[in-house]
Nucleic acid binder design. Structure first.
Lengths: 206, 206
DNA sequence: ATTTAATATGACAAGGTTGTCACATTATAG
DNA sequence: CTATAATGTGACAACCTTGTCATATTAAAT
């Protein structure tokens, strides 16, 4: 956690630091981001940085917390209305919301994407558990839908859950084009639909 | 390319350098691997390194070439007998061969995996084009199978090709366990089958 | 045996990064 | 209007990493 000195800073300066850090952590993996670059872009002296944060990890974990908060806030309304959805409906919803979030907060999404791909020490520390939990939740929903006769019982629950998790996290980022958000959005939603169609009905004729 | 000095080296020393480099490049992304570490592990003096290679990139590109050769050699027999396979049969075959290769050459696979995830300058230089080409080939095969009535015509060819490419590259590495190759192998093949089943028939009941 | 070419070595300069610290500046309290 | 606490600063030590180069050492050629 940042020291209180940082939290007491006026918003402008705080934002300068946060935005500078977000920019770098969205461009390179954690290990390759340099404190020197962050303070240079944020225009704060080296000494100040260490007055605000313990070290790079301290700052990074703080950013992740901010990102998580932003995402939860963003997903809030959606999460209110998922109780009656089937797993596939939920997946479609989350795909959609994922796209929306990626367009609204591309930097945040890039940071999460890098962390997801990197599987470094910090990933183990902060994401591994959540991913495991998400998988379990998905698995339970899938099993429920099997009981309801919505999903074939011979499907491997665990693997299906993993597939969905992998596809949800990877697909959004590729097609993202900040310069053309509307087109981007449409394209990504279409892609989502097509992927889900394959998963629902398969590709085999007849 | 390495300088002739390196190529003329006796096999033992050459292998020491290559294996040391392979070890590091399979553990960390290219940018985070340090020449210092490689020469230390290979037990060659700093000066020698620069007598053998231009720089880190020179060495890395050389390793990638070796890996590619190994892989092509490995896949050779398989590639002889794919002419009459449907796209899905081919996919199954390549999944299988991918698993076998990952077990036979886990270090190589890890290096390729890191490169695939990183999308850095070197990726653009050596892999981007191949990936594009693979996608095109897949797309053609899919279209052919649509004509033959094997794949539903309403499936989006491009996206289906991408999905398969993504799944083939990501799945193999996760479950890999060097300590228990046979169990690993069996588990991974089963996983492959289950994924392919979802892709062929979909998950939806009825 | 001598000369010439090829290799091997490791000290070193140049450049970069991190974390600290003594000191300057500003805010707060008495 | 001090005195005390909180912040702001940037020079600096300690540590790395890269690429080079003058100097051995070894091999090949004459």
């Amino acid at each position: 956690m940042p020291k209180t000195t940082f939290l007491n800073l006026d918003k402008e300066k705080k934002d300068r630091v946060i935005n500078s850090a977000l920019a770098f952590f969205s461009e390179k993996p954690y290990e390759q981001v340099m404190i020197s670059d962050i303070i240079k872009k944020a225009k704060i002296p080296r000494g100040s940085f260490y007055q605000y944060f313990e070290d790079k990890e301290d700052l990074y974990l703080y950013l992740l917390k901010l990102i998580q908060e932003t995402k939860l806030e963003f997903l809030g309304p959606t999460l209110q209305n998922i109780a009656n959805l089937s797993f596939l409906q939920l997946t479609r919803k989350l795909f959609e919301e994922g796209v929306k979030f990626a367009l609204a907060r591309p930097i945040h999404v890039k940071i999460l994407d890098l962390l997801l791909k990197n599987k470094n020490e910090i990933y183990q520390k902060v994401l591994a558990e959540s991913m495991q939990m998400a998988e379990t939740i998905y698995a339970n929903l899938i099993d429920q839908d099997k009981e309801k006769g919505l999903i074939r019982k011979d499907i491997d629950t665990h693997i299906f859950a993993r597939m969905i998790l992998e596809l949800t996290s990877n697909i959004a980022i590729d097609e993202l084009d900040i310069n053309n958000p509307e087109a981007s959005f449409k394209r990504m939603l279409e892609k989502n639909d097509k992927i889900l169609q394959i998963i629902e009905y398969g590709v085999k004729e007849g």
